[in-house]
Design a protein around this nucleic acid. Structure first.
Lengths: 343, 343
DNA sequence: TTGTACGCGTTATCAC
DNA sequence: GTGATAACGCGTACAA
C-alpha cells in the first residue's frame, strides 16, 4: 500500500538518467559533478523523497562510525555526566554511540562487547572495571578506558594523586591536629589509588599526624549512615578536642558525614574540616556546601573520544602503525573550596 | 600482515565443505542440521576464529534491532535514571540503543532523528520536548514518548494527576491553613500539568485555602536560591503564624527551600510542611529527608520499550496493521512520606 | 537435510 | 565528468 519500498540510488539513477555511480558521487564527492547536474540530482532526491541508508554504506566501505560504550551504571552523577559529555562529542566527531550498562557483571559485559564487535564498532570506550585491560587490548580495535586499570590500553584519568594532594594540603592549611582519610581499600593499579598516595605523601612531607580508615561504606544511604556513624563516634572519642581534617572518598559520603554532625550539633562544629571528591551536585546542594575536588568530566570525555578517534583514523590507513605503548592521558582536578573548610 | 581479512560464511563453507546456506542456517535455524554437522561447523568457527557481522545481516534481512533515543540531557537524576533503565532492557528484548543528547535544540534534534533513520532504527524513544508529536508521527516508524506532549504518538507517562492528589492530600491531612504549590507555568498538553490540576482539584474538593505560585526558578543553584528566597520571604509575611503546606515542583527545589529554612531557623519550623516530586537522591540525602512523590522510573522505562517492541513486531508482519489511536500508558507514582511532613 | 542463485543498497575500481 | 561492474557478507526463495 502506502508502504512503498525505499528509494535507492538505482531509482534515482533511472529518474535522472545518470548511473548509480554518479548518484553516489553526488554524496561523497559532489564537486566532481557539474553544478547543473548536482541540481538535477538534488531535485530528484526531493521528488522521490530519498532517505539515505547508512547500513548499505557500511557494508560497502567498512566504516560504521560506531563507538561502543560499556559503563557500569548511570546511578551516580559521575557516570551519567561522563556519558552525557561523551555523547555530546557527536557534534565534533560524528561518531554514533552504542551504549551498554555493564552492572559489574563480567560475563555479561563480555557478551556486550561481542555484540558490539558484531556491529563492527570502530572503537570502544570502557568505564567498567571487570574486564582486564589485557583482555581489552586483545580485541584488536582501538580502546580507551576511563578511570580504571589501564596497563595494556589507552586511557584518560583524573590526576588522582594531585587531587589527594590538593585536598590534603587544604586541610593542612587549616592547622588540623589530625588528618583523616576515609576510603575503601584500593588496588595500586586503579587510578583512584593516587588519592590515597597523595594524602600519605603530603602527610609525610609535612610530618602531619594522620590516619587512614579503610572501610566499605555500603551502597544504600542507610548503610552509609550506619557505617559513617560508627566511624564518627570513634573519631569523637579518639580525637576529642582536636581539630580534625577529614578527606573522604566522595561527596555523597561527605554529605552523610556532614548531616550526622549537623544533626548532632545543629551546625558544623568548628573543629571539623571536611573535603569530599567529585564536585557532584550534592556538594553544592548540601545544607553547608561541601569543599571538594572536582573532576573535569567534560575534558576527560573529550580527551577520551579524541584519543579514540586518533587511533581509529590510524586504523583506516593502508598500513596502520599500532601504538608501541598505550597512551595515558591525565586531567588535572580542580580544588573547590566551600564552607566545610572555610567556616 | 596479522591483519588477515575477516572470516566469512564463504570461508567456513569451504573449510567444512558445506554451502554458505548451511552455515547461515547453523546460526538462524540450527535444528535443521544434524547434530553431527552442527558440531563440525561449531569446530570450524573455533578453528577459523569467526566473528559475526551483523551489518551484513541487516542489509540482507532488514532488521537492525536498533532503537534510537533522543533525550534532552543527562544532567538530572530523572533523565539519567530513565536512560539507565531503558538501556537495561537489552537483556529482555535484545534491542540495541543509539543515544543522542538533544539539549533542547530543535533543529539539532531533527538532524539526529535523520541520522537515526539513516541507520534504519526500528523504533524511536523520545524524551525531548522540542519536536511536536505530529512531526514524530510522520516519521513512519514506531515512536514512544515519555513525559512530554504526546497527542499523535504512543507514550508512557507518570500519572501526574494522581501525584498531585497524593502530595496535596498528604499536606491536607496535616491540617495546613494554607496550601501552596510552586511550579512553572505548564501547558495542559504536557503530562506534568496533571500535578497542578491534582493540586487544584483536591483543594477545591476539600475547600482548602490555597495558592499557586508560578515562577521560573532558574537552572543554577544560585538562581534557585535567590528566587525561592524571595518566594519564602513573601510567604513568611503573608502567612505568618499559619501552617503552611508547600508542594513544590521537584526535589531539587524542595531541598533548596528546606536549606533556606534550616539556615534561618536552625531546624525545620513546625508550621512548614514540604513535599517534593521525583524521589531523586537529594530527597533522601537532604539534612531532613524530604517527602516526595516518586516516579516509578523502572516501570516507565520497561513499559516504554515494551510498547515500542509491540509496534516494531507489528511492523515486521506482512500486513502491518497500524494503530488507529496512539496508546498512552500511565504509571502510578508512589507517595513517600519522610520528615518534612512527619515532624 | 542441503545447495544454487540472487537480492539487500551502497562504494570502489577501472574504464571511457 | 561519467558509467559499467564487481565487491561487501549474509538471508532466502526455490530447487534438489
Amino acid at each position: 500500500m502506502s508502504q512503498k519500498k525505499n528509494i535507492t540510488f538505482d531509482d534515482i539513477a533511472k529518474y535522472t538518467n545518470f548511473s548509480k555511480t554518479t548518484i553516489s558521487r553526488y554524496f561523497n564527492n559532489p564537486d566532481s559533478l557539474t553544478l547543473k547536474n548536482q541540481e538535477i540530482i538534488a531535485k530528484a532526491l526531493e521528488d522521490l523523497n530519498y532517505k539515505e541508508n547508512k547500513v548499505a554504506r557500511i557494508l560497502a566501505n567498512g566504516k560504521t562510525e560506531f563507538i561502543g560504550i560499556i559503563i557500569p551504571t548511570l546511578h551516580n552523577h559521575y557516570h551519567s555526566e561522563m556519558l552525557n559529555q561523551i555523547l555530546l562529542t557527536y557534534k565534533q566527531f560524528g561518531y554514533k554511540f552504542l551504549v551498554f550498562i555493564g552492572n559489574g557483571e563480567e560475563e555479561t559485559e563480555r557478551q556486550y562487547i561481542k555484540e558490539l564487535l558484531a556491529y563492527k564498532i570502530e572503537g570502544l570506550i570502557n568505564l567498567s572495571f571487570t574486564i582486564s585491560s589485557k583482555e581489552l587490548a586483545d580485541l584488536q580495535i582501538p580502546v580507551v578506558t576511563i578511570e580504571r586499570e589501564d596497563k595494556y590500553v589507552c586511557s584518560v584519568n583524573t590526576d588522582n594523586y594531585m587531587g589527594g594532594i590538593q585536598a590534603t594540603s587544604l586541610l593542612a592549611k587549616h592547622n588540623c591536629d589530625i588528618l583523616i582519610h576515609i576510603n575503601t581499600h584500593t588496588s595500586p593499579d586503579i587510578p583512584s589509588y593516587g588519592r590515597i598516595k597523595g594524602f600519605l605523601d603530603i602527610c609525610k612531607e609535612k610530618q602531619l599526624n594522620h590516619r587512614i580508615i579503610y572501610k566499605v561504606l555500603g551502597d544504600s544511604y542507610e548503610l552509609m549512615q550506619k557505617n559513617l556513624g560508627e566511624i564518627l563516634n570513634e573519631l569523637e572519642i579518639e580525637y576529642a578536642g582536636l581539630r580534625k581534617g577529614i578527606f573522604i572518598s566522595n561527596d555523597t559520603h561527605a554529605n552523610v558525614l556532614l548531616n550526622l554532625l549537623i544533626k548532632k550539633y545543629g551546625k558544623l562544629p568548628d573543629d571539623y574540616f571536611i573535603v569530599g571528591f567529585d564536585n557532584s551536585p550534592i556538594s553544592r546542594e548540601a545544607v553547608i556546601p561541601i569543599s571538594t575536588v572536582g573532576q573535569q568530566i567534560d575534558k576527560i570525555a573529550f580527551e577520551a573520544v579524541s584519543l579514540l578517534v586518533e587511533q581509529m583514523n590510524e586504523q583506516k590507513k593502508r598500513k596502520p602503525i599500532p601504538l608501541k605503548e598505550p597512551i595515558h592521558k591525565v586531567i588535572t582536578p580542580l580544588l573547590i573550596r566551600r564552607e566545610t573548610t572555610e567556616h
